[in-house]
Write a protein that binds this DNA or RNA. Structure first.
Lengths: 178, 178
DNA sequence: CGTTGACATGTCAAAAGTGACACGTCATCA
DNA sequence: TGATGACGTGTCACTTTTGACATGTCAACG
């Protein structure tokens, strides 16, 4: 259900959008929390339209279709938000690699972590740039939208960067001693 | 491929294990990074055995089978670790909910976040307990195994708890003013 | 005029993951 | 003895996700 929820959320945040727009929005805004390809998004939108959660409108010169969330769609989104489930799913290949770190040589682990730290640092810079720009130029219908997620994303990215750096240093230290 | 990698990692960390053991290990150790049900684990183990990544041995009175990682399996794991991919996948329903927070009423969001903060606090206590015990009683073949992942898990859980608390406070403040 | 690249929508087979059903052992407790 | 619960392995239908293929428009540049 999460894909559906994410799409309903984006339609709420950004207003009427095309599948193409939503694909881009997925990459730029919600990518930190969820991913989806256009090959999954287009069929899902049509399914939701058939179920009355969104409306479709043929619009524009290039075969563009615009989707808009309905009352029912909003209700579905709201229900998902308020329905507390104990088991919220979480999958992260980065964390998996952290777990598996001892399977490789210490110097390899250090190199890997340093590289990761750089990747996270770059991502962090990007996210902080987005936040800085968000203050002036608001591309969002509701200016608060995505703000909490952006804040969380920044914190998580910073954590990952710091963890990678500190763990690299720690491994280096213990390898030097051992 | 991540399930396969996780299983190979667990077999490296814990030594020869049954599918049942691995299912339990998934829940207790790697759950923070990846999840899998036994219905996915059993077939995958047999598939890996057929491909020579693990060996099987019928062992024990209750139809128990013991799987052990092979050279090939270790090579596969190592290759995955060292192969740097730009796009590491990450999915989190918690982060998705963070994004969607503005779709519900402020007081509802505050309640939700407070609840989440408690859940994360409880999980954090559990993880810190595991870490404390890990020092004395080592149930791990290689005592360092899982340590980095545990550290990362603790940091991430703490971040989630703090974020939930702080965001709840912030929403409460701005709702009181607005 | 041709080509490149963003815009735009789709399908489809295959892989990954879920939840329910199914079967059987063994130890402990009432 | 009978029930409960941990141990232990599996299948199967269904949903979700991926990656490749397919098709076409439109604007800008050389």
């Amino acid at each position: 259900m999460s894909l559906r929820i994410a799409l309903l959320g984006l339609l709420t945040a950004a207003g009427p959008s095309s599948g193409y727009d939503l694909t881009k929005l997925f990459e730029s805004s919600i990518n930190n929390a969820w991913q989806a390809r256009h090959s999954q998004i287009y069929p899902e939108l049509n399914k939701m339209a058939a179920e009355g959660l969104v409306t479709v409108e043929e619009a524009g010169p290039r075969g563009r279709k615009t989707y808009e969330i309905t009352e029912e769609g909003s209700a579905e989104l709201r229900a998902w938000m308020l329905d507390e489930q104990p088991a919220r799913m979480h999958r992260s290949e980065a964390a998996l690699r952290a777990f598996l770190l001892p399977t490789i040589e210490p110097h390899e682990a250090v190199a890997l972590l340093r590289e990761q730290a750089e990747v996270h640092a770059a991502k962090l810079a990007k996210l902080e740039d987005i936040r800085a720009r968000r203050s002036e130029n608001s591309a969002w219908r509701k200016p608060t939208f995505g703000r909490y997620a952006l804040d969380l994303g920044i914190r998580q990215t910073r954590l990952l960067r710091d963890w990678a750096e500190e763990t690299a240093a720690e491994i280096e230290r213990s390898a030097g001693q051992g």
